[in-house]
């Protein structure tokens, strides 16, 4: 547990990312990897489960974007074009404009990645497999042609997703090497260098609220894939 007292004792670092944000981030990494692996090695039942897990995580993250801790909220990190432009102009300055949480570019990049993952999962849900055995649970809602289109697009769209994941990793590497700012460690520990210029006090949401979100997201996905149709 951390509080203001230990924060001020440590002096240099402050709590930035809450536990739900960190867990969600790293589970998304795990399940995108698993989704790739299971598709590549034809473990399609696992592939479906991995997709349901990703859908649950993305839905939870959207919920947390409204009711989570300060740095998790869309309102906090989705900034207007002025802020984005200003930040971009100082991108190559060291150490650069001080930021708590997502910077104005990183905020939009996170939203974009969430949308891309959501789109990819939706394509999977409607996909029609040529053997019929690995069709998505919502494929019964669309025609065979539309389902095949979804499946082919699902496969091609993964490359688009990979491209943006690559960009995300490249940006993090740029911050580490060029700006000497270790964002990866911050995403593990939740703590980042204290920014003395900003007086912003961050709000941290209680964990029970995250638990409610996870249960709601999970229940919704469960309903979507079982009640609406059933999987083989």
């Amino acid at each position: 547990m951390t509080d203001a007292a230990t924060d001020s004792l440590s002096g240099q670092r402050q709590r930035v990312w809450d536990l739900p944000v960190r867990i969600t981030h790293w589970l998304i990494v795990v399940f995108i990897s698993l989704s790739w692996w299971t598709a590549e090695f034809d473990r399609m039942q696992w592939h479906a489960w991995s997709g349901y897990a990703l859908l649950t995580l993305v839905l939870f993250r959207v919920y947390w974007g409204f009711v989570g801790s300060s740095t998790a909220r869309f309102r906090h990190f989705l900034r207007g074009p002025g802020a984005v432009l200003r930040y971009s102009q100082g991108l190559f300055s060291r150490p650069g404009e001080p930021v708590v949480g997502h910077n104005p570019l990183g905020g939009w990049s996170s939203l974009l990645l969430l949308i891309l993952i959501l789109g990819q999962v939706l394509l999977g849900l409607f996909s029609e497999d040529v053997d019929g055995l690995a069709s998505g649970p919502l494929s019964y809602m669309v025609s065979y042609d539309a389902g095949r289109w979804a499946a082919e697009t699902h496969e091609e769209f993964f490359d688009v997703l990979l491209l943006f994941i690559g960009l995300h990793i490249a940006a993090v590497a740029f911050y580490l090497v060029y700006k000497r700012n270790n964002l990866v460690a911050a995403m593990f520990t939740g703590r980042a260098a204290r920014d003395t210029d900003t007086e912003e006090s961050l709000y941290f949401a209680p964990l029970w609220r995250a638990a409610i979100g996870f249960v709601l997201a999970g229940a919704f996905v469960w309903w979507l894939v079982t009640q609406v149709g059933f999987t083989f």
């Binding site: 029609e128 040529v130 019929g132 019964y140 065979y144 095949r148 083989f232």
Partner: peptide
């Protein structure tokens, strides 16, 4: 494929 889809 369409016939199998109809069945499923």
């Amino acid at each position: 494929g369409e016939a199998f889809k109809t069945i499923r």
